[in-house]
Amino acid sequence: MINILSIIFFPLLFMGIIHRVKAIMVGRKGKSLWQNQRDFFKLLQKDEVLSQSATIISRMAPALSLAATITAALFVPFLSTKAVLSFRGDFILVMYLFTLSKGIMALAAMDSGSSFQGMGTSRELSFTAFLEPAFFLIIAALILSVGAGSLSAIFALQNVVSAGIWNVFASLFIAIALYIILLVESCRVPFDDPATHLELTMIHEVMVLDYSGFSLAVIHYTGALKIFIYASLISHLIIPPYSSAVWYLLVLAIVYIFTGVLESLMARFRMNRNLELVLVPLSIAMLTLTILLVLNTGVW
């Protein structure tokens, strides 16, 4: 129940942290943490303008994307370590629900027949090709470390302070890999800049160029929820198992603040070399897997 409440309230609130941090870094006061919620409700009340070439796909895509992401979020541990739903091997379903949400949004972007949206789609989807194996290998590494189970169990049990110096390294590596996945999946700097205003250089934002009103609000919320899911996974990876929610919130806030700081300090990478950097989580996952393999099979 706590988790369902956190799915509903936290994503947009924590997005506010990023905006606030960015504003403070450049010396502005920044908007209130609740501003995102206000924008969300404002957008909900507005009418929509749809492209002339839009079909039913444009109309159902945001709803399906949100439904898939929320369903995936039910398997993730948030404030309470125990996820709403869990079964053995549920991470496959979670990953594919993410893919469903991404895939239907890609179709919706192509639906408008705009050349910009086509570009954004192909960029965003090409990231997926390397992130999916990376995520699965990370899970495989964690299974090696803590034994098979469900997503929530795996992430709750694994932590930095668990036995063995190599395990610490493994956890830290996995946290870094997950953080890069977070940056790519939610299209933050250095891979993509959500605040950019030139269509040619956008990735995620250009995909939703033709959305407005209710649908746009839904899309914003879906994006925020996605970041929240990954940040929560990182947070649960780092904190000791079954520790109090305060620790969880603290690490979560650090992740968000770090994202904001990173965004203010870094420029984005070159567009056509982005994909090479997306390979980093995959390589980290392989490295971690090797470490754990060597540990577990006792060759060391």
């Binding site: 109309r59 949100l66 439904a67 369903t71 039910l74 739903l85 269509e199």
Partner: peptide, 30 residues
């Protein structure tokens, strides 16, 4: 799980259909 997914989808879709007035416009091309 699919049941949850489909129910959520149906709810969001129907709410949107009830609330939103649609207009048609040209695709944004700068």
């Amino acid at each position: 799980v699919y049941l949850i997914l489909l129910v959520l989808f149906a709810v969001f879709y129907i709410v949107r259909k009830l609330l939103v007035k649609e207009k048609r416009g040209a695709t944004w091309a700068c």
